[in-house]
Nucleic acid binder design. Structure first.
Lengths: 206, 206
DNA sequence: TTTTAATCGTGATTTTTTTCTTGATTTAGT
DNA sequence: ACTAAATCAAGAAAAAAATCACGATTAAAA
């Protein structure tokens, strides 16, 4: 991904992408920036600026080709390039993510889950096996997996993260509310469910 | 929430909050902006600016009082004010969110779940009952619930959202990848799992 | 006490992001 | 053809956010 896409932009790009998928399903071939802008409650020149970033020219009075937009969003966001990942923590959230097929169409390939609960080990979820956590280091090495999706309870988050780092995991998508301590070689992405919700709620609901 | 807290700030506030919780557990009473900044990989003056927004003064050479910071973050983000919500869609994600106890401590109170699958109806999840979706309008009215957390499959998202809106739901926290069409009286918050992940992944993993 | 180093507070600067504006283009209607 | 309306493109302007810089404060060490 040569270009450095700002967080806000990549967020909007995925929203645009969803709209493109919808338009394709409905057989609509072109879409204009005001249409999209109105749908998302943003400015239409914002939409055009974002599309320009994709090097995707529109046609005056007509708009953009839905198919082309969808393709270049996918290319820009790297959907095409599949990335393998492990889910660590086969609790409810872990299982939910394992079943979340959208990941696949967005280029994130969940290979397996890990847990320390013997009852869960060897179960299958959405064709993915749950392994005992002790098997992780070996599988990381054999499969060259760099990404872990962390869905364990908060109190174990740091200890498990340390274990993942020892096992050579390079990227942690952190769904726990803990703020992980990691060395500079490891990148953490905090999925901050409450943060984004509070922002939403605070604006209106008092 | 009188003040209009920008999205990025409220995001950082929840991260600060997690760190405060951790410090309290460890019995540490003060924390400095450089400590926090280093942990999150951001600038320390940024942290101070955010704290200033909370009207929370620090002490030179010492830092801020952890307890005070935690309290004022909670006050500012409205943790104190409990908000009731329904989860619509008792699939894996819906069940996971129903079990996610952090919601409660952040002031979001899940009252019940709804689904159209007769097999799921009347089950209990984390002390919350699953009702048939047809019961929703009545319960919205009786309990005065304004928030729905939407976790149905994408293809039903718009239809279910329309139903929620007819039932007088005012805020939709949308976990589906669909971009909902709603009237201006209804606010949608898109939880864009892939968007935030792609942003993370794009930066490094190519 | 005096010095030193860490830390705060805040105004200035820079960078990033969004919105505004204007002119060109294109389709559809006259 | 000509006109009108919608739309794109792109630069300018404005707004927002992040970073820098530095004086003031304070706790601990010399």
């Amino acid at each position: 991904m040569s270009k450095n896409i700002p967080e806000k932009v990549s967020n909007r790009l995925t929203l645009y992408h969803s709209i493109m998928v919808e338009y394709i399903e409905e057989g609509i071939e072109t879409i204009s920036s005001p249409q999209i802008a109105q749908r998302l409650g943003i400015d239409d020149s914002q939409v055009r600026k974002d599309f320009k970033l994709l090097n995707n020219a529109g046609k005056c009075r007509v708009g953009y080709l839905v198919k082309d937009l969808k393709d270049s969003i996918e290319k820009t966001l790297g959907f095409a390039k599949t990335k393998d990942a492990f889910i660590v923590g086969a609790g409810h959230l872990g299982l939910a993510l394992a079943k979340y097929d959208s990941f696949n169409s967005y280029g994130l390939n969940i290979l397996a889950l890990f847990d320390n609960d013997p009852q869960k080990v060897d179960m299958q979820v959405n064709n993915k096996q749950i392994f005992h956590i002790s098997k992780l280091p070996n599988l990381v090495e054999r499969l060259g997996v760099e990404i872990a999706i962390l869905t364990v309870p908060r109190q174990y988050a740091q200890a498990v993260a340390d274990f993942l780092i020892d096992s050579n995991i390079k990227y942690i998508w952190n769904f726990t509310p803990a703020v992980l301590k990691v060395p500079p070689t490891v990148k953490v992405w905090n999925e901050n469910l409450m943060g984004s919700f509070l922002q939403f709620a605070c604006k209106d609901i008092i």
